[in-house]
Lab assay of single mutants.
Amino acid sequence: MKTQEELTEIVRDHFSDMGEIATLYVQVYESSLESLVGGVIFEDGRHYTFVYENEDLVYE
C-alpha cells in the first residue's frame, strides 16, 4: 500500500506533463489510505479537481 506522500507524487507527476503547477492540494478530510482527493492549479490559471484511487486518476 502506498503512503499519501507517494500518491501525491504520482498525481504531481501526471499533472506536470500538462504544464507548470502553481499549487497541488489534498483534501485530507475526503482522502484515505486508498484514495487521494484534491486539486491542482497551474501557473496559467487552469484548475482541476481530482480523485486518485486504485491506480486510476479521474479529474475535471
Rank of each mutant, 00 (worst) to 15 (best):
E20M: 13
Y25A: 03
V28H: 10
L7S: 02
R46A: 07
L36R: 00
R46T: 10
R12I: 09
V11K: 00
Y52A: 03
V26D: 02
E30W: 05
D56Y: 14
V37K: 13
V40A: 04
G38A: 01
H14C: 06
I21E: 02
F50P: 00
V37L: 07
L57V: 09
E60L: 15
E6M: 10
S32F: 09
G39E: 05
G19A: 04
G39P: 00
A22P: 02
N54I: 04
E60D: 09
Q27N: 14
V11P: 01
E6Q: 08
E53I: 12
G45K: 04
I21G: 03
E34F: 07
E5R: 05
E6S: 05
M18F: 14
G45C: 05
A22W: 13
F15S: 01
V11E: 00
S16M: 12
E53S: 14
E60Y: 15
R12W: 12
G19K: 01
D13G: 13
T23G: 05
L24M: 11
M18P: 01
S35F: 09
F15N: 01
L36D: 00
E55G: 10
H47G: 05
D44T: 03
K2Q: 08
L57I: 10
F15V: 03
Y25N: 04
S31V: 11
G39T: 10
K2H: 13
V26C: 05
E5I: 06
E30A: 08
L57H: 02
T49K: 15
E34S: 15
N54T: 05
M18S: 04
G19N: 02
Y59F: 10
G19E: 01
G19F: 03
L7F: 04
V40I: 09
V40P: 00
V40H: 00
Y29I: 05
F50I: 01
R12D: 02
D44M: 01
H47V: 08
V37Q: 08
T3P: 05
D13H: 15
I10Y: 07
Y25F: 05
L24Q: 02
I10L: 14
A22L: 10
S35Q: 14
T23F: 07
M18L: 09
S32V: 09
Y48M: 07
I21Y: 02
Q27W: 06
D17F: 11
V11S: 01
K2G: 06
E9A: 14
A22I: 08
E43H: 14
E43Y: 12
S31R: 04
F42L: 09
G19Q: 02
M18H: 09
A22N: 09
T3I: 04
E55P: 07
K2N: 05
D44H: 02
I21P: 02
L33T: 13
L33P: 13
S16W: 09
L24G: 00
E34W: 08
T23N: 11
G45V: 01
G39M: 06
G38I: 03
E34A: 15
S35I: 09
M1S: 13
V28P: 07
S35Y: 13
L7P: 01
K2R: 11
L33R: 12
V37H: 14
V26G: 03
Y52H: 02
N54P: 05
D17H: 13
E34N: 13
E55C: 07
E55N: 15
Q4A: 09
D17E: 11
G39S: 08
M1C: 09
T3G: 11
G19W: 03
L24K: 00
D44Y: 01
R46D: 04
Y29P: 06
E30V: 10
R46C: 05
G39Q: 05
E53W: 09
E9I: 08
I21L: 07
D44V: 01
S32E: 09
E6G: 05
Y52T: 02
V37W: 10
G38K: 00
S16G: 10
G19V: 02
Y48S: 01
I10V: 12
Y48D: 01
V58E: 08
G38F: 03
E9N: 11
N54S: 15
A22R: 15
I10N: 06
Q27E: 11
S32M: 13
V28I: 10
E6I: 08
R12S: 06
T8D: 04
E60P: 03
Q4G: 05
L57W: 04
K2D: 04
T3S: 11
D56I: 12
Y29V: 06
T49G: 04
S35N: 07
E53P: 01
F42G: 00
E20H: 12
S32A: 14
I41V: 06
S31Y: 08
E20Q: 13
Y29A: 06
V37N: 07
F42R: 00
Y52Q: 02
R12F: 13
Y59G: 03
Q4N: 05
V26M: 04
D56P: 02
V58H: 13
S31D: 11
D56S: 15
M18E: 04
F42T: 02
Y48H: 03
Y25V: 05
S35W: 06
V40M: 02
H14L: 10
D56W: 15
E5H: 09
T8P: 02
E9L: 14
Q27R: 15
I41K: 11
K2A: 07
E43Q: 12
S31N: 12
G39N: 07
V11G: 01
V28A: 10
R12L: 09
T3C: 05
H47K: 15
M18Q: 08
V28K: 14
I41Y: 12
H14D: 03
E55V: 06
V58D: 09
T49S: 10
F50Y: 13
V28T: 12
D56G: 14
F42I: 02
E6N: 05
I10H: 10
T49R: 14
G38S: 00
E43F: 14
S16H: 13
H14E: 06
H47Q: 12
S32W: 08
E60Q: 15
Q27C: 08
E53K: 15
D56V: 14
E60C: 10
M18I: 09
E30Y: 04
E43D: 12
F42N: 00
I21S: 01
E30N: 10
L7D: 01
M18Y: 11
E60N: 15
E55R: 11
L33W: 10
T23A: 12
E34Y: 05
M1A: 14
V40Q: 00
Y48N: 01
S35A: 08
Y59R: 03
V51R: 15
T49Y: 08
L7E: 01
R12A: 09
Q4K: 12
Y59I: 15
D13P: 04
F50H: 00
